[in-house]
Design a protein around this nucleic acid. Structure first.
Lengths: 220, 220, 220, 220
DNA sequence: GATGAATGAGAGTTCATTCAT
DNA sequence: TATGAATGAACTCTCATTCAT
């Protein structure tokens, strides 16, 4: 009569796992991997200590799960972006801008996970580095491929290395994300993207004589 | 086997402190602040536990010392770069390239410290964030000022935001550093810098008609 | 040899806390606050290191708990003693004696706690001094008030300072406690109390003829 | 020319030892045995770490030396008091008062050492208990002997136990010392001693008319 | 499934003591 | 005789993990 309760409503395992994953994401995002304690996670998930270990083998395991879930989301997004048609020079700069804005928005909407991925995965524990390196490589390859296509279509200078361009793009993107977007929810993403695209465009624009008619204009 | 150890090699305090600082840098670079243990540091420095605390009040204190020492070096370097004369458009791109190369080389030569700065400072522990933010801001201001001067001299497009440009430059720089230079001692820094400068130049080059006479100038 | 230990005996939290409190009291009583190690406490309580910190936030915290628990007991006892009726001169000396005996017995029954209170609180660490000073003051006030009542009833000389008397009484009491009661479980508390009360009442002045009718009697 | 100095003026060993002893007394008095660090002592004595161990084998050893030095002083004082002539009842109470005052003054003048003796020696570390117990016993014996002499001279009631009286006296004395004298340099020692002596002599029994011929007067 | 009391290795830090100079 | 850099055992406290219920 006293002991009658204590045990919690059993939940469908998938649901409970999901709750734990969300709690973990929230905690990792705010404290980082090492400072985050299992105690923090179970406190937020409102489950008992033991319950946590029913769903994840270790603290490391949840972190991996959190990271991988987000990696998957990013890869999805990456593939979704391939849907857009190549178009011609006329709309290219606008499309570059929209692409950047879309990415910035995506990460802004997943601030928490982004913090984890960018801060933790890029280091501290070598065990988590591999997954991040792979994701990064995927992104680089993706953008490099895009540059390559644009070069083939003569929409981008042919003398530039597509791989290196991809890296430079990622670098600029990271910086905007860290310096403006993640730290300020009210950041003007469209403006940032426009500036990046403008810079990117005039940097990658094909050679001079074509340019006299400028990229914005449609060729006659 | 037992007696062989238990060294006792008194060293001038400055020397010992330096050795500890180097050991700490090495450890922090590889493990990050939280994962790094004082045990790791004394193991590498080959001193007893107590010796460490003879020179640094706490783990936090060594970390700060490591970071500040490097921050100071960077600020020195930053000021040293102001010495270079402005020059004209003809040599600008080459100078941009050389500047980037110089920086890459500087960080490549301080691989360990760089890892600490880039990984920890970008955070995890809010106590260390401030110093990094300030340094970053110093760098941004520095480059923004340079862009402003170049704009005044009509060597850079006036429509670009100098501050944002500075951020983009830093982002690209970080990426090259992380993706190529820090991970590969044999990275071709000159080539990387040349590509970055090429990209940067064509992005920031003043408007078109001037460009026909532009720095590269096609031979007639 | 290895497997034999590693018990794991979950207990109701209140019970475990109590056990730890008792172990801590025992240890503090014998070693004093500073010399007592958490290791000593867990060894005696037969729990793991972590278990201790499950119930007390710090070594300081257990000590405070031990001290406060005992302070509370003493204050209770102090109030309980006010129940006794004032009575007349005839029974006063007997009542003084009984009061002292009761106190001695009380402390004899709480030997361990008493050692902690009397040794630590009287100092070493200023953080713990306040509580002791307050308790002591409570006791002084209590006894001073009693002397004042007795003076009003003309049962005690009016020229004496009640406060100072209270201090002197406490001093004698402490001494009996330390010199006889705490160190010897078989001490004859009744006899000690009788002697103290006799002295308290009559002082050391020789029996003059008037006094043969002694203090118990009222002068005719 | 740089290394010429560092070594300090060699001092006569006895003098240096004395300086260290004084520094140690000062430190122990303020921090207690455990909290006091050898560092504190050498800092105050302005000698190097190793020098300390040239004069004392260990921290424990200095403490013992400090304690014994003071014990010796006390025993000297104790013997000095035996010089006073017994006198008759007329001046006895005044002599009791003066004796108490003299002791209070003695300890007030050696506040530092007194703190060490009373706080540390009365415990914490069983190693130091013996010396204190012996000193205390010496004092008890001394005062008990005096009471015995006074009883023989019929100046003190014969029914009282001299030993117990000695303890009670010591207890009251300790209390005045702790509660008033040690904590307040401006304490009115004469008044305290007068009250103690008055109480010691007369107890708390009300003034009966017979007593008006009381102890101060010589019986007719 | 779910609980939470219990565990213990290991973290950062202190300090009495030693000994090469 | 005097120095002070060096030592390492011992301390308090943390937290990922286990398991009896």
């Amino acid at each position: 009569m006293l002991a009658m309760s204590r045990r919690r409503t059993p939940l469908p395992p998938d649901r409970r796992r999901q709750l734990l994953l969300e709690a973990a994401t929230w905690v990792f995002a705010r404290k980082g991997y090492r400072a985050a304690a299992v105690s923090d996670i179970i406190l937020r998930a409102e489950v008992a200590r033991g319950t946590f270990y029913l769903y994840f083998a270790s603290k490391q395991a949840v972190f991996l799960a959190v990271v991988q879930a987000f990696h998957d989301r990013i890869r999805q997004e990456l593939q979704a972006m391939d849907a857009a048609p190549p178009g011609d020079a006329a709309g290219l700069k606008a499309r570059l801008r929209d692409g950047v804005a879309r990415w910035l928005r995506f990460f802004a909407e997943h601030r928490d996970e982004t913090r984890v991925i960018l801060r933790e995965a890029s280091s501290i524990d070598p065990r988590f580095e591999k997954g991040y390196a792979e994701l990064r490589q995927t992104a680089v390859s993706h953008f490099a491929a895009r540059y390559r296509r644009l070069q083939a279509a003569r929409l981008v200078r042919g003398t530039l290395s597509p791989d290196l361009l991809a890296h430079l793009l990622l670098g600029m993107f990271d910086e905007l994300l860290n310096a403006f977007v993640l730290s300020d929810p009210a950041a003007d993403i469209e403006a940032l993207a426009a500036e990046l695209a403008d810079f990117e465009w005039n940097g990658i624009a094909p050679d001079v004589e074509d340019r006299t008619r400028g990229p914005e204009r449609t060729a006659p």
